[in-house]
Each structure stands twice: as structure tokens, then as C-alpha cells.
Amino acid sequence: MQTQANQLNAIIQTENLSKTVPTSEGPLHILSSVELIINPGESIAIIGASGSGKSTLLSLLAGLDTPSTGSIMIKGHSLTEMNEDGRADIRNQYIGFVFQSFQLLPGLTALENVMLPLELAGDKLAKKSARALLDRVGLIKRLTHYPNQLSGGEQQRVALARAFVTEPTILFADEPTGNLDSNTGEHIIDLLFQLNQEQQTTLVLVTHDPALASRCGRTIKLEAGEIV
């Protein structure tokens, strides 16, 4: 019964999720039969060696890529039955991202980068919210700076602000500290968990870093595309 209740409440649920790509030496199985249930408010760390399929799993869960077989449900919507436009809607409504390589748009200032997702959703108060969040991450004096005028840590803080500004239901983070030194990385992680707490976001995090993984509520380990 417990499992069923969990399944009903699950915010992310996968069934028999696999990803196979053809290569010159036959099909390569990146993920095989992944079964996963993530409940609202949970924080999950996906760990594993390079090539174990962590990033692929993340991209499938976030609807950035499509699986070869299996299904993914997000808040009761079947991602796998949607087309690309449907998945875009889901991303816009529920999902936020933080990337290892920050992915800020080079032509936009810090403020504009943070405003962008709100503007896409047609939010009239985009500027106000974006300012508030940049203030929250300590960059109120850097609003008009362009990404290449910011340090790595500052860029990732802008990225955090951008991810949280829409108050997403789920936040996907791909090696958020991978490009930062350990000191800066720690600050970013602190900030990430603080914001996560404040907004009650479900957090799915891919990392190599055992210390970071230990701060999450649950750890999923991947080996050769399978959960172990």
C-alpha cells in the first residue's frame, strides 16, 4: 500500500527506462531498465563514474532527450507520450536547470539572463523578481555585467538565480560545482540548498563529489547504465 501511495504522489516516476545508441560496433546501452520514484521535496544525488549514464538519465528525466524504451511521468504527465512542444511546456511550468558550464547567454547581462525565463512565461514583473533573486545570491552590484565580466562562481550564482526565479517544482543540476574550485563550489552548494529549502523544490543532482552527494536525502548510484 505504501508503495502505491508513493507512486500516486510521486513527482517523477520512471518505468523500464532505457537508452541505446547505435555505434559502429553495434548498439551501445547507456541506460538499461531504470526504475525510479522521486517524491515531492526530495533531494536526490545521482552518482557514478564517468560514462555510467548519469547525465543521460538527467537529460531523460528533464525531457531534454527521449528514451529508447520505457516511460517517464512528471507530476502525472507522461513525458514519453508528449511531443517536443509538450515537453517544452512541462519544462517551462515545472522545471529549472543548473549546469556545470553555467550556460548563461553571452549577449545578455546578469539581470537579463535571470529575467529571461520569466519573460518567456510572459511574467510582467520579471525585472522585479529577477533583481530580488540576484540580491538573494549576493550579486545586486553586478546586475549590468555580462557573463564574460563575471568570475566562474559569480556566473554560477547568476545561473542559480535564473533556475530559482521561476520557483520551479523540480530543479535539475548537472555537476553544478564541476567547473569551480572547492571553496567557491561549497558556497554555491550552500546557496543551492538554502534556496531549495526556501522554495521546497524537488532537487535532482548529478555529481562526482561524495561530499555533495551526502548532503542529499537519497543517493542513487549508477554503474554501466544500471542502478546499483
Binding site: D85, I90, R91, N92, Q103, L120
Partner: peptide
């Protein structure tokens, strides 16, 4: 390209 990819991530449809 990166901008487009990012916009897609943020929920923009292709159209």
C-alpha cells in the same frame, strides 16, 4: 545555437 538550446530548456517551443 546555445541561446536557442537554453530557450528550449526554459520551455520555448520550436515554433
Amino acid at each position: 545555437f546555445n541561446t536557442s538550446a537554453m530557450l528550449r530548456c526554459l520551455g520555448c517551443k520550436q515554433r
